[in-house]
Nucleic acid binder design. Structure first.
Length: 494
RNA sequence: GGUCGGGUGGCCGAGUGGCUAGGCUCAGCUCUGCAAAAGCUGCUACAGCGGUUCGAAUCCGCUCUCGACCUCCA
């Protein structure tokens, strides 16, 4: 089975073929840790988490690098993001970085995103970045001005390099459009040039020695340096949010080619934006919900709290290259769907029935749905489409449980296959967890057994007022009873 | 202004030139002491106008409209 992926470089779906067979090197641009991550960030990293998980499921040995940006990210007024965070909170820049890195990690754990293989920090790779600047200078694609070093986009373009290819920019436009602004560009030869190394002003506290000045690296440089260090000059996948395409990723490509003559990645993946009120969720303009606000329900945008797995499920319902708009209604729909899915997974795991010994009538349907799931995932990780098959399988599971489909119409072998594949998809690939696992507390389990037993007696005596009271009070306590053919079951509800 | 991507049923959200997306909601039915859950059935959509085609939501053109990027952003 072949995996096809959408490559931003070509704008087309391409057959995925790693450089080294059986191995994948993947670099994803991580967060800048000067402020709490918002849900838009989380969506991106959940998207790449599913990609990472699926690649591993296919048997690839994946080296997944996701950096942490803790220096070199300038604001409009030239202030470093880390320094701005530090100034506002009266902390050391490194305290700011640590604090928000911790918070970011907590969120990723909460949303069940696997940690990357390596999570390098920009400040931990100053030497590598300085070396890369030197390489670029040596090859003639950068120039020094007053202790700062800039990338020479004009020369890069003149030499026939593909500047603008990734972001679909037209070179002539890049060169001509901003000519009027030229006089306002202090040290740069050309407005489209960008900083590789920046000389630190006196009050700039994040600073390192370099051959050119005491200063700090430009924002784009860290990813070039760290991807090269851990994945080599050429690797398989480079990912990030759509909004990083230009200038960040474009400049990264330029830096890599400037330093070693090779474009870094064969495949570029870009995730689309999370919207709130039909507008891009963004830290800088305040249109955000934080993970904490979502989970606690403490937001003007939502009517109630939504659990981390509901959020994860919510993001799975849209393709990673589509925008996804947050609304309270759609979150509630996701919550119900998620619960239904988990309920079916529980049924699947626990059902003991007399399945057919030989292949049977429903086997074919189950097989084709499983095949469909792989087909859809192999089509550029189409998770929402895969989910459609998953829910069709849920209907089959529930029907078998309720006796609408006879266990004799499914072979034992096929049922086992169903369990294996569905659990792999739901838990291993989609990374969902059952938040309503009744086995997590033995005490409650014992108590519930007793209560259900007492209620059963009441029901046998047709003492409906007692049995209803038990059910109502439990409901208020967040436990839903469900009377079925084979006794009473219970589950947590919010 | 330039570049790019959208506009799908009550809501969210997939999608292929002809074949059921799926989830949620709503209505009816089955099951049930009543609930809840589950199953079944129904609610037959593709911004507008042209064109290509035996046939288009899917291809082309135009119009309207929304959004992203254009050196802060996942």
């Amino acid at each position: 089975m072949n995996l096809f992926v959408f490559n931003s470089l070509s704008g087309e779906k391409e057959l995925f073929k790693p450089i080294v067979e059986g191995r994948v090197g993947m670099y994803v641009c991580g967060p800048t840790v000067y402020y709490d991550a918002h849900l838009g960030n989380c969506r991106t990293f959940i998207s790449f988490d599913v990609i990472y998980r699926y690649l591993m499921h296919l048997g690839y040995k994946v080296r997944y690098i996701r950096n942490i940006t803790d220096v070199g990210h300038l604001l409009d007024d030239g202030e470093d993001r880390m320094m701005k965070g530090a100034r506002l909170e009266q902390l050391q820049p490194m305290e700011v970085a640590q604090k928000y890195s911790n918070g970011f990690h907590d969120m990723m754990r909460l949303f069940n995103a696997l940690p990357p293989s390596i999570e390098p920090r920009a400040t931990g790779h100053i030497i590598e970045q300085i070396e890369m600047v030197a390489d670029i200078l040596k090859r003639g694609y950068a120039y020094e001005k007053n202790g700062s070093v800039y990338f020479d986009t004009l020369k890069f373009i003149k030499d026939g390099n593909p500047y603008g290819k990734l972001s679909g920019r037209i070179v002539e436009d890049l060169l001509s459009e901003s000519r009027d602004d030229l006089k306002n560009q202090d040290e740069k030869n050309h407005p489209s040039d960008f900083a590789l190394w920046i000389r630190a002003s006196d009050e700039h506290i994040m600073r390192w020695n370099s051959p050119w000045s005491v200063g700090f690296p430009g924002w784009h440089l860290e990813c070039s340096a760290m991807s090269t260090k851990y994945l080599g000059e050429r690797f398989d996948i480079h990912g990030g949010g759509n909004d990083l395409k230009f200038p960040h990723h474009e400049n990264e490509i330029a830096q890599n080619m400037g330093a070693c003559g090779t474009a870094p990645a064969n495949y570029w993946f870009h995730t689309n934006m999370l919207l709130l009120n039909s507008k891009k969720m963004s830290k800088s303009d305040g249109n955000t919900i934080s993970p904490t606000e979502l989970i606690t329900g403490n937001s003007v945008h939502t009517s109630k709290a939504y659990s981390p797995m509901v959020w994860r499920f919510f993001t799975l319902q849209a393709h990673y290259r589509s925008t996804l708009d947050i609304t309270d209604d759609s979150l509630q729909a996701a919550e119900k769907a998620y619960r239904r899915l988990m309920e079916s997974m529980r049924i699947l795991k626990n059902m003991q029935l007399d399945f057919a010994k030989e292949s049977a009538a429903k086997d074919e349907t189950i097989s084709s749905l499983i095949a469909q799931m792989y087909q859809d995932m192999n089509d550029d990780f189409n998770v929402p489409k895969t989910l459609a098959s998953v829910f069709e399988l849920c209907t089959i599971i529930n029907s078998v449980k309720d006796g609408h489909i006879s266990a004799q119409s499914i072979s034992e072998l096929k049922w086992k296959e169903l369990i294996t594949h569905l659990e792999q998809f739901v838990f291993d690939i989609f990374g969902l967890k059952d938040e309503n696992d009744n086995n997590d507390s033995n005490t409650i389990d014992q108590l519930m057994k007793l209560v259900i037993e007492l209620r059963k007696t009441a029901r046998e005596n047709k003492d409906w007022s007692s049995s209803d009271k038990i059910r109502d009070v439990l409901k208020e306590a967040g436990i839903q009873l469900k009377d079925g053919k084979d006794g009473t079951e219970w589950m947590h509800v919010n």
